[in-house]
């Protein structure tokens, strides 16, 4: 569950054992009530979302060929439900930037974290701007696991300027330094919904363009209050527009 609060936004995760799960009258219907420790914050506003994950755990008995027991987990596309925390106000669906069908055009079936997480609209519940992780091998250094940054960087992989310069890009034990996007990297529409990738922001652009000089360029064109002037040169119709440097195929 996550959504906006007065200062930023908040996210809460629970498991079925933490809430109160009640079976409904109809077979297969249930109600899960969050525990008192996971309430909607008092400062919540706007539209919030609840998403769920369920997996089927299957025990595999030993066979003549595989003599030791094992198991497998079957996931499912995660449902996401939007709701307003203000009575009488209609919930507004979250902007869809990437479309799962486009992901699965290459991946066939996205399934992460053991296979139970298969919907990008579910991924962003946790992979939001607050999520970070340690940079492997660099004590005290963290990196963003925000979906935007992380996925851009994973697909850029070997083409990241920092990797080309001899560095590595890894998250935990997974090293993506050798990943090659199997088509022109400028094909934003391979993943993105139409009209969602033409507004330049330092956060999005510097996830792939990660050279120190690019970071300096972005910082120099950002005010002390956080306003960015990227669109002056990179906005739609400008000389160095996103659509010009990443032309649609």
């Amino acid at each position: 569950m996550n959504g906006p609060v007065s200062t930023d936004y908040a996210a809460t995760q629970i498991t079925g054992t933490q809430g109160t799960l009640v079976a409904g009258a109809t077979p297969g219907s249930y109600s899960l009530t969050f525990p008192p420790t996971a309430i909607i914050p008092l400062t919540a506003a706007g539209t919030w979302s609840i998403a769920m994950q369920a997996s089927r755990y299957e025990y595999l008995a030993p066979t003549l060929i595989r003599t030791t027991p094992s198991s497998v987990t079957h996931g499912n596309t995660n449902p996401v439900f939007n709701f307003s925390v203000t009575p009488g106000v209609t919930a507004a669906a979250r902007r869809e930037v990437v479309q799962l069908a486009r992901c699965n055009a290459c991946h066939q079936q996205l399934a992460f974290h053991g296979g139970g997480r298969q919907n990008t609209s579910f991924c962003v519940m946790c992979h939001n701007p607050t999520l970070t992780a340690a940079v492997p091998g660099q004590t005290g250094v963290t990196q963003s696991l925000n979906f935007q940054n992380m996925v851009h960087r994973i697909h850029m992989g070997a083409e990241l300027p920092s990797v080309v310069a001899g560095g590595r890009f890894a998250i935990g034990s997974d090293d993506y330094s050798g990943v090659h996007f199997p088509q022109p990297i400028s094909n934003c529409a391979a993943c993105h919904a139409p009209n969602t990738f033409t507004t330049p922001t330092a956060r999005a652009c510097t996830s792939c363009h990660d050279a120190t000089s690019t970071a300096a360029h972005a910082q120099l064109n950002t005010t002390a209050s956080g306003l960015e002037s990227c669109a002056t040169c990179h906005g739609p119709g400008r000389s160095f527009a996103v659509s010009a440097v990443h032309p649609a195929l």
């Binding site: 569950m1 409904g24 219907s29 249930y30 109600s31 899960l32 009530t33 969050f34 525990p35 008192p36 996971a38 309430i39 909607i40 914050p41 008092l42 400062t43 919540a44 506003a45 919030w48 609840i50 998403a51 769920m52 369920a54 499912n76 596309t77 995660n78 449902p79 996401v80 439900f81 709701f83 307003s84 925390v85 203000t86 009575p87």
Partner: peptide, 19 residues
């Protein structure tokens, strides 16, 4: 698998998910 509704959705409440 589907979420059919959410109740108790005001700030300060513990929501209930029906699925």
């Amino acid at each position: 698998f589907a979420i059919t509704g959410v109740t108790n959705t005001t700030p300060g409440s513990a929501p209930t998910v029906n699925f």
